[in-house]
Nucleic acid binder design. Structure first.
Lengths: 136, 136
DNA sequence: ATACATGCAAACACTTTGCAGCACA
DNA sequence: TGTGCTGCAAAGTGTTTGCATGTAT
């Protein structure tokens, strides 16, 4: 199993990096590439996103509201997700290295990692709701 | 909008309560009811699970690995999910009431709640992996 | 009586897979 | 020059929706 550096794989890694702030979905990555590079297949994007996250080159973020999103920031950190639009952004809070060891052993479950997701509403969606309420 | 107490709605709430320890998926709730009460529709189960969780009678747990699961424990608490079988169980750790206020304000995002998911491997799946490794 | 709820099937959103041809090492 | 990778389409999984009918109040 010799790994190859295909043009597509590189394009996908570049796209995740350049869409960094967006925490892009697979579809966003696909259409970002497709606009400049028509002909790439969606399956190739999905396959490579899995490959790259399993290889530790990018991070797959499994959020409460699908679809999954991808991040090129490898340092562990937490996210906030808007319950209206589903957009996510980084949460400005220190990473809790000790929290896993504070869980009391249960049924032989071995903890390997943890995620914290703050749920709420982003400024844009909040403004829209206020606007709609005033319109009534 | 007058809410009705249908037989199906009651069956679904009862099923969530009786499958409590399993943290059942919609499909598990459906087949639990269907085995005793053939004819119930899947859509009815999905619709009522949404309804009941929005009304605050049950809790919808959005886990990293789908499908969603449901819980009749209303007190906020955290979960552990096995990366192999996807089963979830409660994490024995105190609920952190102050954590949301420790996130520094970012872009006007309003935090309303938070979730912590511990990811790892359950005893059963861990034993299976050890067994497979020995078989090689 | 009436309008909310149901059951069915189809649609939907997201992701994975099978396969023939392609291209990187 | 072989085999890992691609693009396409189809299938798979989980959930929602449209609609005619049923039923709780």
């Amino acid at each position: 199993m010799k790994i190859r550096n295909t043009r597509q794989r590189q394009l996908i890694l570049d796209a995740v990096k350049s869409l960094h702030a967006k925490h892009p979905t697979a579809e966003e990555i696909y259409s970002h590439i497709e606009s400049v590079n028509p002909g790439i297949g969606r399956a190739t994007v999905y396959r490579n996103l899995s490959f790259l996250s399993e290889a530790g080159h990018i991070l797959k973020i499994e959020t409460p509201i699908p679809p999954d999103r991808f991040d090129d920031t490898l340092a562990p950190h937490y996210h906030m997700q808007c319950r209206v639009c589903g957009e996510i952004c980084d949460a400005d809070i220190e990473y809790m290295r000790d929290i896993e060891s504070r869980v009391k052993p249960t049924d032989g479950f071995i903890i390997e990692s943890h995620d914290i997701t703050f749920k709420g509403i982003c400024r844009k969606c909040h403004e829209n709701i206020v606007r709609e309420d005033n319109a009534e």
